[in-house]
Design a protein around this nucleic acid. Structure first.
Lengths: 212, 212, 212, 212
DNA sequence: CATGAATGAGGTTTCATTCAT
DNA sequence: TATGAATGAAACCTCATTCAT
């Protein structure tokens, strides 16, 4: 899925350089204040550019939003492409534990962005939204593959592994949400959360044998 | 938690009558188009009022948003207060099944509103946001009580029951989200989803014994 | 031909009152400085309104331009509807003289507007442009009827009376153009111009017999 | 009349080479889309130059407009200087017929430009505008000379020949205008139009004797 | 109490022009 | 000489809120 964004420059390298710059800086302000509350002057300021120049690399404000989504998602994509294959060397149970651990830590690192994406996906153009869904799908697909492997090896017994894969992803997002919802009052520790949820998930699919 | 909303009228009854009217009508348009995309002319029109009169019962546009949240949440509150006590008569496992079933059907009925609340909570004033959190807390509290009862009776073996209660709630919301995300492409049936997730949850907390 | 213009008010009378106000004041600034060079702040100022209120009665800046065209053309329409029928009582030659005289004086009165319309018609939306053409057509139609009557009575001998009617109209506009083109340097007197052109036109269609 | 245009280059030949290039290409886009609707990126693209380089040969966007006027008018000037003298060999009536024929065909060829000039003259700086007027004056002067010759020889009997010369010019422009105004609906043929108008004009100044 | 006309700040986007390379 | 990235002022339009009626 490719989302076309208008540019006035023909220098490919410069375009991607500037877009990275925009995505990275805009991510901060968007996440902090929300898409609608950031105006283009602020955005340009955050990007160390003039408003006019911003529009050399982007067609609309919405495009900037997409760049931010893309930027955040690329981090997630890295998780999928980078680490996912290495799990194949391990038994499914171990692999799933590792994948959950890694993914939930990724969510922790990107927690503000995760919440942001839940809240602002609706602002995207349909095609950009579709691209986001696709990424989401690939993410849960990575978990699904491990689940399926576990089912094949007899380690797991799942009902619908797409649903369970989704559950795993969503329960990761929940970590980000709880912090956002509860703010400072939320005193839970990531390590505990991961352990808790790993147990919950494995319990559900392994016939109740918990981690020791 | 009470959120104060300015009014120009002193007739208490009229105020709450009009506010109910506003909440109910505004809910529809907000949910349909999103908070930012609805302006006060449209809002007033939907409420069968003039803009000026709207401002007799409400101080700002945000207040209307809160009224809508309150209105939607009252539906959820009903679920909690109305049905929750009746579960005490059943064994925890049965009670949890029933609660999940009822709640997930509530989510299904309110699916647009659920998504809406995820997306627009950030628009609320801090105090209004707090009120939303509180309701959320009471909701998961209802599940938590059943879980605790099950642990006490030996039916369940959970780690942190607050986390698991949250999981149950969130996995319900996920139903709404998937439909929104996937639109028409989402062909899953509610009955199946409930069964699947009930199995998943019970599996995790009952030592793996699934529903028959 | 009716050109629809968006309004936020439902009070028909107020809408037409304000639109008259807008047309009248906007005409002055537009004619003076040109459509593109007048911004909405200036426009609103000239109309003794706020920008926001202006947009209660109008959908776009273009709409204001059309209001101005309509306003100017209504003056011309008056010429056509008001005076045209009275000419039927006179022989065609006399009638044509009178019509030219009246019309050219109208052009003189509206000279800036006439030039303005030539220059800014292109800025109108297609449907509004069509409405202008129609008015133009009705105008030359008024002359055409006199010409046809004269041909029937043997007073005139024209080739294509639509073309000649057009000529009459255009040569009237030329009066406005010359003043605009030549500015103060243009020292010609309207009376002379009318006489000159009347002779020119009658000469062409009466077999050369000039006015005395 | 000379209009000064700033340049950053000192190479006279290059300057005029580039300016010709600019005028020729810009003419096309200006005529097609209108002065205001063409921006400098488009203009530079059409001229096969970079924006920056454009500004080496021109001081402002207006200057480019003037170059275009100058370019179009040079075509008209050619008509005047090139063909006008040859008419002296013919009797005034014949000369006038020939001049009208040639000029109206020129207008037909340049019809878009003619309309363009009516609409955009106002965008020129005063001194550039004056240059345009002067050219206009020379054009009608060419017809005026023929008229005067005809009056002297007794072929014509005109009132004010400057006015009549203007009429001839304007009625030529009208051909271009009608096509623009009426678009595809205008089905008149140039040959007929020329014949019609020639008759009209000669009729007016020859005492009604029409062409055979 | 009810109306909706009026306000004006603020939003996004465009574009003529400059200037470092 | 030639390039095109960068600038930032200014354009049109929207909308939450007020207030005279």
């Amino acid at each position: 899925m490719v989302v076309k964004i208008r540019t006035h420059s023909k220098d490919r390298d410069l375009v991607s350089l500037r877009r990275r710059q925009i995505a990275c800086r805009a991510a901060q302000v968007f996440v902090e204040k929300g898409y609608r509350l950031v105006n283009l002057r602020q955005l340009a300021g955050a990007c160390d550019m003039s408003v006019g120049n911003l529009y050399n690399y982007v067609g609309t404000k919405q495009d900037i939003l997409y760049l931010v989504f893309d930027y955040v998602m690329s981090d997630v994509a890295e998780f999928i492409e980078g680490t996912s294959p290495t799990y194949d060397a391990f038994p499914a149970t171990k692999a799933l534990q590792m994948a959950i651990d890694t993914y939930y830590r990724t969510v922790d690192r990107l927690q503000d962005s995760v919440v942001f994406m839940y809240q602002e996906t609706k602002e995207l153009r349909p095609d950009a939204r579709k691209a986001v869904f696709e990424m989401e799908r690939r993410l849960s697909g990575a978990f699904e593959r491990i689940l399926d492997r576990g089912c094949a090896s007899g380690e797991f017994k799942t009902g619908s592994s797409p649903v369970i894969a989704q559950n795993i992803v969503i329960l990761g997002h929940m970590w980000a949400f709880r912090r956002w919802l509860l703010g400072k009052r939320y005193a839970y520790v990531l390590e505990d959360y991961i352990k808790e949820q790993t147990n919950f998930i494995l319990g559900a699919i392994r016939g109740g044998k918990q981690l020791r």
